[in-house]
């Protein structure tokens, strides 16, 4: 799971990809996930961090995180799809 390292993420949740010139908005939990992806955490690790911090069950988190990561792929923010 290689997130494009050039991507700038601001506290306000603004994501700018200087390679493509596209920009995005992300909610706070999304920012956390992107930061963890940058630290090369695996999906499993990310899920564990989130379950410790948020009031939700693992099924919901697992489903939502993989949906989010799929969107990052759709937007080409994740460069290749080597499983973590």
């Amino acid at each position: 799971m290689n997130i494009n390292k050039n991507i700038a993420v601001s506290d306000s949740g603004f994501v700018f990809n200087p390679t493509t010139g596209e920009s995005y908005t992300v909610n706070p939990i999304g920012v956390e996930i992107i930061e963890m992806l940058k630290q090369e955490k695996s999906i499993n690790e990310i899920n564990q961090v989130l379950i410790g911090r948020y009031n939700a069950d693992i099924v919901t988190i697992d489903k939502d995180v993989s949906d989010f990561i799929n969107l990052l792929k759709l937007y080409s923010l994740i460069e290749n799809q080597n499983a973590a």
């Binding site: 995005y24 908005t25 992300v26 909610n27 939990i29 999304g30 911090r53 919901t60 989010f68």
Partner: peptide, 14 residues
């Protein structure tokens, strides 16, 4: 106390 959960969201700025 855990934070209120909201699913992650990314929206492209059109």
């Amino acid at each position: 106390d855990k934070f209120r959960y909201e699913r992650p969201l990314i929206k492209k700025l059109e």
